[in-house]
Design a protein around this nucleic acid. Structure first.
Lengths: 353, 353
DNA sequence: TTGTAGGCGTTATCAG
DNA sequence: CTGATAACGCCTACAA
C-alpha cells in the first residue's frame, strides 16, 4: 500500500502538507491541494488506521461485547449499533462472551489496547464493570451498558423498560380474568430478568391476587429452560392458567411443553412472551409478547458514545426505551373449568375487553 | 496505560529485554525474566495491538464482511468464525454490506488499512472481488469467500453443497408423487441461489417432468418475496402441488400466502425450505428444509485463514460442506384432486416411502 | 544474555 | 502557508 510519503513524492509536496490537506488541519494553497488530492486518487491511497490510531491515541473502532450473537435478540441490537457507527465512520469489533465473566474481562482488557473510540457492552453477568469502565474512561473512551446493567453501574446506559413491559403484560392477563398467574424468569442476577419479575409482581400485587412461591420459576433465557420449568408448573395444583415468560425463547419452550402435556394454548393455558422476536408471529399459536426495541437499543448506545466523543460531558445518561404489548393468539381468557375458583365478576370483566 | 518502557523501568531491565520475554524471541536469564513477568502482572500491562500491528505489519484482527447480521442465517456463521478466531487469539471486525456493492468496497478498502490477518467475506453481489483480494494477498493477508462466490472467484472458498441439497429436496418431493413442482429462487446473480435452482432443475429433468417456465420465480431472499411470488404461483393453471423455496424466509412467506389463499399445507400444497433455521420447527406446519451447516461455514473459513497465516501455501481450497434434508410437516404426497393428472403409478410409489 | 537504536505510517508542533 | 522533525509503542537487527 502506498503511504503518505509516497503521496507527497507524487504530488511534489512535503509529507506534512499531505497530512494537512487530508485532515483539513491547515490552509493549503489550492494548486498544491489539488495535486495532493489527485495523487491520493491515483494511488488509491487510504491512511493507515493503525498508524493514525497510534498517533492520535484513539481509533475509529467501537468495541461491542455481547453474550452471543446466535441469540435471536442480539443481532438487531448489533445492527443498530453498526448502522450508527458506520454512518459516522466507525467500525465495530464484535466479541461474544457466552455470559462468561472471565471471557468478558479478557475481551475488555484486550479491546482497550486497540484504543477504541468506545465500548458498548451487554454485561455478561452480575459482574462489576466499574473498574474496567474507569480504566476506559481514563483512556478517554466511553462505555455504555445496554439491555441489562452490571451491579453498581453508574455510567451511561440504555435499557428497555422491562418493569413496565412486564407489568403491562401481566395486567393484560389479569384483565382477561386470569387469577392463577405464574412466571418463568431468566437468571435473576441479570437486571432485565429481575425487572421483569418486578413488573409481574407489581401487577399481581395490585390486583390483590395470591402468588404461590412455586409460581415463580427461575431458569436460563432459553427454550430448554422454558420447557423444563413449564413441565413443573403444569404439575402444580392448582395449575396456573397463564404463564408470563421472561423472554420469547422461554415462551417457546413453554409452548412446546404445553403441547406435549396435551393441553391447548390459549384455551387451557395462556402464554405471554417478552422480546417480540420474529418467531413470535410464526409459532402455533402465534405468541403474544412484549416488544422491545432492540435496534434502537443499539443505535442509541452508539449515539451516546459518539456524543461523548464529541465532547458531551453531561452526567451519566440512563435512557429507558418503551416497550409495547403485542397481542397475538397465545393468550385468551381462562376457561370456566380451568379457572374454577375465580369469581364470576372477574370473568365478566375480562369479557368487556 | 503502562507501556513497555514503563515495565522495563519497573523491572530494572531494558525495553528490548521486556520485548524478548514477552515474545520468547531470545533467551533471557531467569531472574530478569521473573522480574519482567512480575512487573507485567503488577502493572496489568497489555501490549498495544496498534503499535504491534504497525510494527509487525499485521494484526490479530479478522475482517468479516456479511450482508446483514439481522438475517437469521448469518449469526451462526459469524459465531463459528468468532469462535475459531477467538480461541486462536484473533478478533473479528464485523461489517454489514446490505448487499450493496459500493458499501462492500468501502469496507474492504478501509479494513485493509487495519492490516488484518485475513478477511472472511460473504459477497454482497455478483461483484468481482478479484482485484480487492489480490491487493489483500499482496499485503500478506488471505481472503476466504463463503456461502456464495463472486464472479470468477479463484481464491479459497467454503460453501454448502447447494446444488446437491436442492436436488435431494426436489427428488424427495418427486418421490412423494409430485409432478407439478415450482420453485421460488433467490436472486439468480447469487451463486447459491443459482446452484439451488440447478439442483432443482436436475431433479425435475431426471424425472422427466415438464417444467413450465412460470413455475420458476425469482425474488429476494426474504419473506415478502416468498409471499408475493407464491400468490403468483397459486394463480397458475395447472397449479403446482409443491413449492421448493430458495431459503426458509421465502418458504415462510409462501406458508403465509398459502394460508391467506385458503389452501392447506401440506394437504393441498407442499412447501420445502432451505437453511433449516430455528424457525423451521416452530412454524405451522413445521417446515421441511435443507439443513446447511452455517456454524461450520464460519469455523472452516476462519481455520483456512489461520492455516494460510501459518504458512499454508497450497493451491486455493474450495471446500463444499454437505447439506442434510430435514423432514417435518410441510411436505406430503399430493392429494388425488390436486394431482389429478399424475399417474397412479407415481402415487403408489410415493406411498411406499 | 542484554542493551541500543532505527523505523513502521501518522499527526502535530514549530520554525521558516 | 509549508516543510522538517519529534513522538506514538513496539519489534528486531545488531552490537556489546
Amino acid at each position: 500500500m502506498a503511504n503518505m510519503q509516497e503521496i507527497a513524492r507524487i504530488a511534489g509536496v512535503s509529507l506534512g502538507t499531505v497530512s494537512h490537506v487530508l485532515n483539513n488541519t491547515a490552509k493549503v494553497s489550492e494548486p498544491k491541494r489539488a495535486r495532493v488530492l489527485e495523487a491520493v486518487q491515483a494511488a488509491g491511497y487510504q491512511p493507515s488506521q493503525l498508524a493514525r490510531g497510534l498517533r492520535r491515541d484513539t481509533t475509529n473502532m467501537i468495541g461491542m461485547v455481547i453474550p452471543d450473537i446466535t441469540n435471536p435478540f442480539f443481532p438487531a441490537v448489533v445492527r443498530g449499533a453498526e448502522d450508527v457507527a458506520f454512518s459516522n465512520g466507525y467500525r465495530l469489533i464484535l466479541c461474544n462472551t457466552d455470559n462468561d465473566h472471565s471471557k468478558e474481562i479478557m475481551h475488555l482488557n484486550e479491546l482497550r489496547t486497540y484504543l477504541p473510540a468506545g465500548l458498548i457492552v451487554i454485561p455478561s453477568n452480575f459482574s462489576d464493570l466499574t473498574t474496567q469502565a474507569e480504566s476506559y474512561r481514563r483512556a478517554g473512551s466511553g462505555v455504555v451498558c445496554i439491555d441489562r446493567l452490571p451491579r453498581n453501574w453508574s455510567g451511561d446506559s440504555v435499557t428497555a423498560d422491562n418493569e413496565a413491559g412486564a407489568y403491562d403484560a401481566t395486567r393484560h392477563l389479569i384483565q382477561l380474568g386470569h387469577t392463577k398467574l405464574a412466571t418463568i424468569t431468566g437468571p435473576l442476577h441479570l437486571t432485565n430478568a429481575m425487572d421483569r419479575l418486578g413488573g409481574f409482581k407489581r401487577a399481581v400485587k395490585e390486583a390483590k391476587l395470591h402468588l404461590f412461591p412455586e409460581y415463580v420459576q427461575e431458569t436460563t433465557f432459553d427454550k430448554q429452560g422454558g420447557h423444563a420449568k413449564t413441565l413443573i408448573l403444569l404439575r402444580l395444583i392448582p395449575r396456573p392458567t397463564a404463564i408470563f415468560a421472561g423472554n420469547d425463547m422461554i415462551a417457546l419452550g413453554a409452548l412446546l411443553a404445553v403441547r406435549e402435556a396435551g393441553l391447548r394454548c390459549p384455551e387451557e393455558i395462556s402464554i405471554m412472551g417478552f422480546d417480540d422476536l420474529d418467531l413470535a408471529e410464526t409459532t402455533n399459536p402465534s405468541l403474544s409478547s412484549v416488544a422491545q426495541p432492540g435496534y434502537q437499543l443499539g443505535t442509541t448506545a452508539a449515539q451516546i458514545l459518539l456524543d461523548r466523543r464529541d465532547g458531551d460531558t453531561s452526567p451519566a445518561k440512563h435512557i429507558v426505551l418503551e416497550t409495547l404489548l403485542h397481542l397475538r393468539n397465545s393468550v385468551a381468557p381462562p376457561s370456566e373449568e380451568t379457572n374454577g375458583n375465580s369469581s364470576a365478576k372477574s370473568r365478566r370483566g375480562s369479557k368487556q375487553k
